[in-house]
Design a protein around this nucleic acid. Structure first.
Lengths: 338, 338
DNA sequence: ACTTATGGTGGAAACGTTTCCAGTTTTTGG
DNA sequence: CCAAAAACTGGAAACGTTTCCACCATAAGT
């Protein structure tokens, strides 16, 4: 790697002068500019970003922690984040933390050691107080997916409980009373509120909540297929059987629809389904998936905006809401019965 | 931010000693270890990764350039890359370069300035010679998606021409002769070979190639929907109409299926469809999408392995093939006619 | 008791930059 | 033509580390 020293030597000027022409700071004679530029060209010199950020106090990077990359939900989220961050001239340092508090701690430590100018994290395993403490170490700090008290920064979240409530209430309004719930693992932040929303809608309608009708499946689709398959096995065996299913996300709903098809159970004729998220797949499936819209892209953008604003970026847009609200999207997987 | 100096001061030892206990290098007395550890604990000290990699010659990061994040194809690819890279103790520095040579140059420059220990890039706009030249600046350098001559590193690619040939031949074998092709923009590396494979199958069967039957659509799904809609408008209007469609990827196929449904064109009764990639969505759609399997996850892993091997990582697996081969996956979107 | 290993320690150079300061040259205005 | 201002330049410190080297003890072998 060629350094600034090589350039200064070749150009016959001092290091300071090279630095000035590279950064356009301070006055430099035309003659010197020319010599330096020629030397840079010849050597293919590019400044070492590590050395730069060591002395300036900014790295030009935003650290991002999410669970996985290989998932349409996170793809969408990252898309929202990246577009905004990049437009403001920053770049992304991404790391994943599969579902475990330890992995999250490791991930965060790694990211923070690189001195990012801001952090955007989506914690699941970490407790609130730990997140709050961490947020004090890194100034712009935005947490995605939940509101945590005492955090030194911004939180961008979604009204999961209300979303699940809307989904379940919709099924109830369509005459369903035997409604199962395909839930995500309890470590997921959205898991508990979605279960709660489901339960609230049930109880509000005077329907008794049956714990054996909420079954847990993994978030990953590959695993989901088998687990959903197994879960449905049990669910479909009960007498009288369920007439509707509320799944904790669209991917699970898609897997459930496939499994039902394989078992000659018609959706929505035999069983109605409501998903969650309204990812692109929801509109591509047949029948179109009735679901609860979570504006994932916008949430990513909001997180990025919050970070940019806190960094004092020029292009920092106005304050966004901290919590996003759900909206029911009716398509073709719910049938009105009786 | 607390530095090693703060720790050394608090512990009452020299900077060198602190460094030794942090890294477990060199001999340190038990007493000193204890004092230093207590000081680290109290201050919450973590070494500055930038300073570290400035003097050691490694950063622990692998730079990755892909086009977009918000796409199931890239999500899968990144998943493959990240899992392997992370397992070897490295982390990802990700940046996207929307389809333009300039954006790719910028992206690469940014990434390389951070002195990654290796680079994994998926170029589209850049010419071969430029990539080859770039590869000489950064030692472990792996290029994804195409084989480029003279590159100083490894290439992981897919036999796109053959894949498109298989897809088209399958349609021909099922009796189709009026087959259209929904293609990706020409800047995409996979675009030309897939068009060529489509054409080869046609000509091999003595079917005349009609340029007006290959229409171009954007890679992004949102745009795809409208463009596919428009493209199909023209395609479906021709007399005698097409009986089959080969799309350049599964997302486009999914969009096409949706559009056909909206127009009361039955798949595969009225029109057969073959996709490309075999992403998860292919098996989730109804009817299941017949497609050409591209092992995206494995390709990501292969790229990561190549990088790790070149970095001399302990956990570097054996040599992977440079080019992956296609395989036709038959599901339900192709009907045998006549 | 005298050399020789050994364990422990701190000083200082180095990594590649930016930036302050002081110095030198050039320009400007009278 | 002279002083003052402005333009330009290079030296050196600083950023937070690691690591080489030298030093001092203490312990071990003759």
């Amino acid at each position: 790697m060629t350094s600034i020293k090589d350039v200064s030597r070749l150009a016959g000027v001092s290091i300071a002068t090279v630095s000035r022409v590279v950064n356009g700071s301070g006055p430099v004679s035309e003659r010197a500019v020319e010599k330096v530029e020629r030397a840079i060209e010849m050597l293919g010199y590019a400044p070492n970003a590590q050395a730069q950020s060591l002395i300036k106090k900014r790295s030009g990077c935003v650290g991002v922690m999410v669970h996985r990359l290989g998932n349409n939900y996170y793809a969408e989220l990252l898309n929202g984040i990246e577009a905004e961050i990049k437009a403001a001239g920053y770049h992304l340092l991404v790391s994943t933390s599969f579902f475990s508090a330890d992995a999250e701690r490791d991930c965060l430590r790694f990211l923070m050691q690189r001195q990012p100018d801001a952090m955007i994290v989506e914690p699941h395993g970490l407790a609130d107080h730990e997140i709050a403490e961490l947020s004090r170490r890194q100034s712009p700090f935005v947490v995605l997916g939940r509101q945590v008290d005492g955090v030194n920064g911004h939180c961008v979240s979604f009204a999961n409980e209300q979303g699940a409530y809307l989904a379940t209430r919709h099924l109830i309004e369509c005459g369903h009373r035997r409604i199962a719930h395909l839930a995500s693992p309890t470590i997921t932040t959205s898991s508990a509120p979605r279960r709660a929303g489901y339960r609230r809608a049930l109880e509000e309608a005077g329907i008794v909540y049956r714990p054996d009708w909420v079954v847990e499946a993994d978030f990953t689709e590959e695993a989901a297929y088998f687990i959903v398959d197994q879960a449905l096995e049990t669910l479909l065996a009960t007498e009288p059987g369920i007439t509707a299913l509320f799944t904790t996300n669209d991917n699970m709903a898609a897997a459930a629809m496939k499994i039902m098809r394989e078992r000659d159970i018609s959706v929505p004729e035999d069983i109605s389904i409501v998903g969650f998220d309204d990812l692109e797949i929801a509109s591509l499936l047949y029948p179109g998936l009735t679901t609860v819209r979570q504006p994932v892209l916008e949430m990513g953008q909001a997180a990025a905006h919050a970070a940019l604003r806190a960094m004092g970026a020029e292009r920092a847009p106005e304050q966004q809401p901290g919590q996003f609200e759900p909206r029911l999207i009716r398509r073709g997987t719910v049938k009105t019965i009786q």
